[in-house]
Nucleic acid binder design. Structure first.
Lengths: 332, 332
DNA sequence: TTGTAGGCGTTATCAT
DNA sequence: ATGATAACGCCTACAA
């Protein structure tokens, strides 16, 4: 159309140095007029590189994941990558299918969050050429995680310091890695203080808020009601807040509640939620940086753990002074 | 590797009929052993079609968007499409850049939600070959929208029926389309009932919860406090609930609150939130179906509007009996 | 049932 | 500074 060879057009479009001004101008103008856009597929094919990274995540509608994705997108963009997202719905099959399809797309590398496979990637790593970085799976060599253990410890220690001895934990079985660490942190603090955990005080939701609600209801009908609840995450805590309120249990006067994540929502709960902050922006940023290093062939990257810290707001307070000793006799 | 021609391998991999069993088996086995995965870029290039649709959205961390994306992904998958997501951050420049990059990727079609360009796509449509479907922009010929107008009317009518005469609206200027419709619905109901809207009763947030909080604070210091607040969306309503509670205003005794969206979160607010339900699953599903029709060359698609209905929970109640007549004299 | 040949749209290499 | 040529990895006729 411009009466020049494809090579010349190619050079004009990518602002190659060795091309005359006038030709370049002409070609650029024509390209604009006819709305010509080069085909990425063709370019990727000959270049043998897609500047795209794959991101596998659990659910799109998860607030934690949502802001994580934003930080990943931003970091990726600043390094010149596009991001291709796939949801796994916390299903191992779908997760593997997602990774396979990213392999098909020849993405430069993959970030996985909320994995159901976890260490399984050490094997996938050999089969597939693309490097993989996991978020919140510290046992994997290439991973970035929040310090779930320390975060949970701070939360529970805070409750113990407030005088609580009857502390429950609402788990999320779907997030086994993070869940296990938080549970371990919970247990370790209570152990250290020689506080017994009643069997019925560790309850499980199903991942939904309705599930969390049911878990709280179990707690409410248990023989000894806990005076404090440590929740796997903020959404669980919000469900707890609501359920307690419906049951006439005042927070924090009758029962304290602690969440995990520190979503944007947390300060706007009623009352504002005490929770453990995860630095989602740094998690995403470091994950992309690590992946970038791996893509560039640097193999000596170390797994990283980012601090998680307690943010005290209004859902935690002193333990209510109930007849505790007597009840203990009844229970055991 | 199998000692056969590329065509044979190609046929085996896509289960072509005309190939012998044994060869096919062999090839499939070898392919599996050496972890061979065909290159999508090469296939797309020769096939001249990517079975991928592009999805441009405002923010990943928006709960409304999140569940919309899930329904879109699901519908797309069932029709054999992959989905490529890009965030626009409600910025017109980034939105256009997103569309350009999807054009580069030769996606089969594009869905846009939270557009800042809106009707601008009627022009883009000619320049780019890919069909575009907009969500919540009823003025565009190819669009699926919730009935924002009717939804807002139901919400405000509900408040009027409860005796409220001093009703405020918290707007979100970033979502101009939907915001305008909801504002219009709000106005029309009050007009019909010949209820005057105090100038200070239409306030704007900045899209964040903190912004919504400030908007509510403006309302609280206004000369005549509203007895009810209609919020642009649920997150705004949650911020309102919190701010009112902090200020010692009881909901719904002193002030009623209505949201919009009916997020999963809504029933778990304190108190559970009265809101207008948008059928996000249907929005997404219909959007994909419409796009699919356009991709297949059917041009006679009509814009669609999906019903939005009020869900009454616990944040709305009878208007408090204050000395209203007297104050009116003071104010005017 | 299988192989051969051509081409998808781009870039890289080598000439000119 | 520009053009010709080959190649990227795959698919689709067409021929055998």
């Amino acid at each position: 159309m411009a009466g020049v060879s494809p090579s010349t057009v190619s050079r004009a479009l990518k602002a190659d140095a060795r091309i005359s001004q006038e030709r370049s101008q002409l070609i650029l103008r024509l390209a604009h007029e006819m709305d010509y856009t080069p085909s990425l597929a063709a370019r990727d094919l000959v270049t043998q590189q897609t500047n795209t990274i794959g991101l596998v995540l659990s659910y799109m509608s998860d607030l934690f994941v949502g802001s994580l994705v934003m930080s990943i997108e931003e970091a990726a963009m600043s390094l010149g990558y596009s991001v291709f997202l796939i949801s796994s719905y916390r299903d191992a099959k779908r997760e593997q299918e997602a990774v396979r399809s990213l392999h098909e797309r020849r993405t430069a590398g993959i970030i996985v969050t909320g994995s159901q496979i976890d260490e399984g990637y050490v094997q996938l790593r050999r089969r597939y050429a693309q490097p993989v970085v996991l978020i919140n799976c510290p046992s994997y060599p290439h991973s970035i995680s929040s310090d779930n253990l320390a975060g949970a410890r701070q939360a529970v220690e805070h409750l113990v310091q407030l005088g609580h001895r009857q502390i429950a934990y609402i788990a999320d079985p779907r997030s086994h890695g993070a869940n296990l660490d938080r549970l371990t942190g919970y247990r370790s603090v209570l152990d250290r203080h020689q506080i017994l955990i009643e069997p019925g005080w560790i309850v499980e939701g199903d991942g939904t808020m309705a599930g969390a609600q049911q878990a709280v209801q179990q707690l409410l009908v248990s023989r000894r009601r806990p005076t404090a609840i440590f929740c796997f995450n903020d959404l669980t805590a919000i469900a707890a807040l609501n359920t307690l309120s419906q049951a006439g249990v005042r927070v924090p006067a009758d029962c304290s509640v602690v969440g995990f994540d520190d979503l944007e929502l947390a300060p706007f709960c009623c009352p504002p939620l005490t929770t453990v902050r995860q630095h989602r922006d740094q998690l995403g940023q470091r994950a992309v940086q690590m992946l970038h290093q791996l893509i560039q062939g640097q193999c000596e990257v170390q797994p990283e753990t980012l601090p998680a810290e307690l943010v005290v707001r209004k859902t935690t307070g002193p333990a209510p002074a109930v007849a505790e000793g007597r009840e203990e006799v009844i229970d055991f």
